[in-house]
């Protein structure tokens, strides 16, 4: 079993410690510091995120997505063809994102995540997993003012992000996580989603894990595990029906399961026993060595202290699970 983070980490510490990312962002907005000075603060805060994950004992970490304004803008602003518009609610959260607008042909211009990945990996004693917002979700959360059909937008974004994954290949990441929460709300788009995944993954050498959250993969899981991916991530907190999905659709022995079982959106800390019971249950469908135990989504929904406590709990569960199986 591997313990892993799945995405974002709080950018500021809890009070009374100063939130220097927030202060710097305000200063940048007022033109009191340069882009370069802001980047130095992002570097320092990324190191904090890495330190917290390493101290918590995780096997596989992320860079905390400190540089992400939100999962859409971070990608859309570096692709050709998108402008960035007003605020929209992000799924069923109280978090908002700026909506990308496809105003022209979407294409890849330059590496988006590569430099950030390189920075994180070179400063981390543990393997770092880059995260890329998937083409379906990025398109679903955008406005389309250019393409005749939504499907055309999705496939263009998939081809653009394929270039990004290929650029990441050169860095030999241990695994790349592709986030596709939006497909859970649009099951009818499965054929299009398959096509988009084929375009996204074409010629990509790095192992890829496909993550979903904020719902269950009813009617989808069977198809998701057939994609050329190393594993599939499921959210068992917001999508408790994923238990029935596993029961109904099964899980193939040659795929890893991203087991999102610690609630990323509530401060209540699960007990070790509670998580062990869930692990025990999931092992009826997938062997323990193919489980990637993690939070149900990124952790930026929580204050930092609570986020760290969740990560520490993951390691405690792993230790206890190893004891039990010994």
């Amino acid at each position: 079993m591997r313990t892993t983070h799945v995405g974002s980490y709080p950018k500021i510490p809890d009070l009374p410690e100063p939130g220097r990312w927030r202060t710097a962002a305000e200063k940048l907005q007022r033109g009191e510091i340069t882009r370069e000075q802001f980047r130095q603060v992002e570097d320092a805060v990324t190191l904090e995120a890495i330190r917290d994950q390493v101290e918590a004992g995780l096997d596989l970490i992320t860079d905390g997505q400190i540089r992400w304004e939100d999962p859409q803008t971070y990608f859309a602003r570096r692709l050709s063809g998108f402008s960035i518009d007003g605020l929209q609610r992000w799924f069923d959260t109280n978090v908002y994102y700026r909506q990308p607008v496809a105003e022209g042909p979407v294409s890849w211009r330059e590496p988006i995540t590569v430099e950030d990945y390189r920075f994180a990996q070179s400063h981390s004693p543990r393997p770092v997993k880059p995260v890329v917002t998937g083409p379906y979700t990025l398109s679903r959360l955008s406005q389309n003012r250019h393409y005749a059909r939504f499907a055309d937008l999705v496939l263009a974004v998939a081809r653009a992000l394929n270039q990004e994954l290929r650029a990441l290949d050169a860095e030999s990441p241990p695994v790349v996580q592709v986030d596709e929460p939006a497909i859970l709300q649009h099951r009818g788009d499965l054929p299009l989603f398959r096509e988009a995944m084929a375009a996204l993954l074409e010629g990509v050498r790095s192992p890829v894990v496909l993550y979903t959250y904020f719902g269950d993969a009813r009617g989808l899981l069977g198809a998701l595990v057939e994609l050329p991916v190393q594993g599939v991530g499921l959210d068992f907190v917001a999508g408790p029906r994923n238990w029935e999905v596993l029961e109904a659709e099964g899980f193939p022995p040659d795929r890893r399961l991203g087991f999102g079982v610690l609630d990323a959106r509530n401060t209540r800390l699960e007990t070790v026993e509670e998580v062990l019971r869930a692990l025990d249950r999931v092992c009826r469908f997938v062997s323990l060595d193919r489980v990637d135990l993690g939070p149900s989504a990124g952790l930026e929904f929580l204050p930092r202290r609570a986020a760290k406590a969740k990560l520490v709990r993951l390691s405690e569960v792993k230790r206890a699970a190893v004891e039990v199986t010994r």
Partner: peptide, 17 residues
């Protein structure tokens, strides 16, 4: 109050628990 949580950009709000 659990702490500050980001809602968007650099906007944070004190989220109750």
């Amino acid at each position: 109050i659990a702490g500050l949580v980001r809602s968007y950009g650099n906007r944070y709000y004190p989220k109750p628990v």
